[in-house]
Simulated assay, not measured.
Amino acid sequence: MTLRLIPYLVMDGNAKEAIQFYEKALDAQVLFSQSFGEMPENPEFPIPKGTKDRISHATLKIGETELMLSDTFPGQPHQSGTQVTICITTNEKEKATKFYEALQEGGQVGMPLQETFFSPAYGSVTDKFGVNFQIFTEGEQMNF
Score class of each variant (00 low, 15 high):
residue 46 P to R: 11
residue 139 G to V: 08
residue 94 E to R: 13
residue 91 N to M: 02
residue 25 A to E: 05
residue 99 F to I: 15
residue 144 F to K: 11
residue 104 Q to I: 11
residue 102 A to M: 09
residue 86 I to Q: 06
residue 109 V to C: 09
residue 72 T to V: 15
residue 118 F to R: 07
residue 11 M to D: 03
residue 127 D to W: 00
residue 13 G to P: 06
residue 47 I to Q: 03
residue 34 Q to P: 03
residue 21 F to E: 04
residue 117 F to T: 02
residue 77 P to N: 09
residue 144 F to G: 11
residue 1 M to W: 00
residue 87 C to K: 10
residue 135 I to F: 07
residue 50 G to C: 10
residue 142 M to G: 02
residue 141 Q to P: 07
residue 10 V to I: 15
residue 76 Q to N: 13
residue 56 S to E: 02
residue 70 S to T: 04
residue 134 Q to W: 04
residue 96 A to F: 06
residue 38 E to K: 12
residue 97 T to S: 14
residue 124 S to A: 13
residue 130 G to E: 08
residue 123 G to P: 02
residue 61 K to Y: 04
residue 106 G to P: 02
residue 103 L to R: 08
residue 83 Q to H: 14
residue 40 P to C: 06
residue 138 E to D: 10
residue 57 H to F: 14
residue 65 T to G: 10
residue 36 F to E: 04
residue 6 I to S: 07
residue 87 C to S: 15
residue 86 I to M: 13
residue 111 M to G: 00
residue 74 P to D: 00
residue 86 I to N: 11
residue 125 V to W: 03
residue 54 R to M: 09
residue 96 A to L: 02
residue 38 E to P: 07
residue 102 A to L: 09
residue 76 Q to T: 03
residue 18 A to C: 07
residue 135 I to P: 07
residue 78 H to V: 02
residue 32 F to D: 04
residue 105 E to L: 15
residue 15 A to Q: 05
residue 62 I to F: 12
residue 10 V to Q: 12
residue 58 A to S: 15
residue 89 T to A: 09
residue 133 F to Q: 02
residue 70 S to Y: 04
residue 30 V to I: 15
residue 108 Q to L: 12
residue 73 F to W: 00
residue 133 F to G: 01
residue 17 E to R: 08
residue 56 S to F: 09
residue 127 D to H: 05
residue 50 G to I: 06
residue 27 D to I: 00
residue 111 M to P: 03
residue 128 K to C: 04
residue 33 S to N: 08
residue 35 S to E: 08
residue 19 I to Q: 04
residue 84 V to Y: 13
residue 139 G to Y: 06
residue 123 G to H: 01
residue 21 F to S: 11
residue 98 K to L: 13
residue 7 P to I: 08
residue 135 I to W: 00
residue 104 Q to N: 06
residue 47 I to E: 01
residue 135 I to M: 01
residue 92 E to V: 12
residue 104 Q to Y: 05
residue 23 E to T: 10
residue 8 Y to L: 13
residue 94 E to Q: 13
residue 44 E to A: 14
residue 22 Y to E: 01
residue 73 F to M: 14
residue 38 E to L: 11
residue 15 A to H: 00
residue 100 Y to V: 08
residue 109 V to Y: 05
residue 86 I to C: 13
residue 29 Q to V: 15
residue 43 P to R: 00
residue 6 I to M: 07
residue 39 M to T: 08
residue 137 T to S: 11
residue 67 L to G: 03
residue 67 L to Y: 00
residue 108 Q to A: 15
residue 35 S to H: 05
residue 37 G to D: 05
residue 24 K to T: 12
residue 70 S to G: 05
residue 138 E to Y: 13
residue 125 V to N: 06
residue 122 Y to S: 07
residue 43 P to V: 04
residue 58 A to C: 14
residue 103 L to E: 10
residue 122 Y to L: 07
residue 50 G to E: 07
residue 1 M to Y: 08
residue 119 S to W: 00
residue 94 E to K: 15
residue 126 T to R: 11
